[in-house]
Amino acid sequence: MEIYYVFKNNIKRSYHNTFQFILLLLLPAIILLCSNVVGQMSKPSIRLGILYEEKNPAYHQVMKSLNQSKGITFQKAKEESLHTDLILGTYQYIIDLREVHEIKNLKILSYASDSSIRKITNQIKRSVESGNKVQLSVNNKGDITESERICAYLFTVFIITATINACILIKDRKEGMLRRFGFAPTKIYSYITGNTVFNLVVAVCQIVIVYGVIILFHIPVYLNIIHFLIIMSAIIFFSISMATFVCSISKSDLSANVLSSCVALLFTLLGGGFIGFYKMPFILQKVGSISPVHWIINSVGAMEDSKDNLPLTSIFLLIGVSIVLYLGSIKKLSKNVQ
């Protein structure tokens, strides 16, 4: 019963800042849209630069092959900023045709590893000599798919929004509401559970909005609804218990927000949310296997591969850690009251 009272009180409080509350509800959907728009505008393609003179017959041969190719964009490279363009990523590889009149003497300039330069050189030479289109296969093992990337981003965003919601705990502790609860004939866990239920309801609304956006804008998440719900429930359980724990040990709003943002970013970085997990150095792979983002990415990958497979171990692990954090926050707050 007390849980319901705390929950109702929180809803009444959210009416005071309606604009901020609605912004919080829409935040994950907005971030999802922005990242999708940017991702679509810069479609993954290999950027080639070519150094040539017009009279060179080899140039026309190369252009004939490149014009037939898909997934490759090419431009004339500038000689003055050759190395800078390669290092800063304007071109991934530059075909050097300056002193070359036959295709077999073709040179490729790049700052990638020597073995990949050799591979690409051979592929281009073979395609151009036979007049076919150029198909460059860059090593893509270990890159994360779109669905996994989206789930990793949502994890980060949910931790941050859950912490903003759970800052009510800190505000109540400063204003003395927690002490009043301690004097009342109720247990402290009903107060925390009430706040957590409010957080949960807000998170469920956010997930419904996100799912609506995914369907409306055809965002490439290849999970059926049951798998999506399972993954999202694991994410929100973890983020809410993490937020409650962080707010129970922090002394101010600012430090709670900063701590949870840092932890969320660190988990995403180490778990392979930005770069593929298997592309990281070996030591960091060992360290990153404790990150929840790594478990989430593995689960999503397993769900995408076979539709019947439910990767239960990772999900149970996430829920288990959430329960531990939740109990920890109850213990810490009860100590605070006494």
């Binding site: 290092i87 700052y111 590893s113 970085l269």
Partner: peptide, 17 residues
């Protein structure tokens, strides 16, 4: 530099970048 040490090849190390 440690995280992205596989990004660059032998001519430029990630720490230099």
């Amino acid at each position: 530099g440690l995280l992205l040490s596989g990004q660059f090849g032998e001519r430029l190390s990630s720490f230099q970048y």
